[in-house]
Design a protein around this nucleic acid. Structure first.
Lengths: 134, 134
DNA sequence: TTTTCATGTGAGATAATCTAACATATGTTT
DNA sequence: AAACATATGTTAGATTATCTCACATGAAAA
């Protein structure tokens, strides 16, 4: 995972901005948090701070609600997605260890990964916030 | 110019977040505004709202101040930069009209531009906010 | 028809930000 | 040296944005 993961999880946006960006009411956003669909960070003074990922999720929630899905359904869908990501990770991991690398192969790989550490790579299924940034 | 120009000028960030992101004090940020180095937007209730471009500029200001440049100098530098951008635009424009396109060439170009309208293209000299987004 | 769900709305509290004024350290003129 | 200018800190008092909690409501489900 590249450093972009960090950036997309950085708490940056006040609820007012998120309302504009998502066209959701404060009530709705707080309600979705109450149902644990999002978990925005908080300032020292308890104000919510949302990340790009939070906003993506809110846009997904909005879509699903428009399609008639309720809280429970959305939560399930998010969990399934999350699991599929995890299992993808596991597969990758399993595949990796299965290959029984020689020491030299291993060193080569390691070096390659280090060299690519700074590069930007995106998770495959992004939300719609890509509209707002390049 | 692509739609990314709009995105980079979208007022999104409160002064608190900008303080964290730039490591400048509120006093400093307001002082730079007073000297017209930045012009953040305002909410209905008069709170400042900063764009990605504003933040890039603040990081540039910080650099220049570290290098001993004063307000007047920074303002000059910004103006020169702005002019160079404008003249680049003019050059591009001049080059374009000079070519005296045929109608068919023109239609082809237009279609191409329309197809690429949604793509992400960056301005050449970005600030440092690229660290925060992909 | 009750209940439940998703949202609206209002009250009262508090955090974040605003402007304006004065303080201060460092560097510049006279 | 004394006076001034520049960039920033700090404080005070006012106002906005957000918070939680409670109650209201329309639509859908039971």
């Amino acid at each position: 995972m590249g450093g972009s993961e960090i950036r997309r999880n950085m708490p940056l946006f006040s609820i007012g901005i998120v309302m504009q960006l998502t066209d959701l009411s404060a009530r709705q956003i707080r309600y979705y948090e109450e149902h644990e669909l999002i978990s925005p960070a908080r300032t020292e003074g308890n104000k919510r701070l949302f990340s790009l990922n939070d906003i993506d999720k809110l846009l997904e929630i909005k879509d699903l609600i428009d399609q008639g899905v309720n809280m429970a359904g959305i939560k399930k869908i998010f969990n399934v997605k999350q699991e599929s990501v995890i299992s993808a990770e596991e597969k990758k991991q399993a595949e990796k260890t299965r290959r029984e690398l020689s020491d030299s192969e291993l060193r080569k790989l390691l070096r390659k990964e280090l060299l690519q550490a700074g590069r930007f790579n995106r998770s495959t299924d992004r939300g719609d916030m890509s509209r707002f940034f390049h």
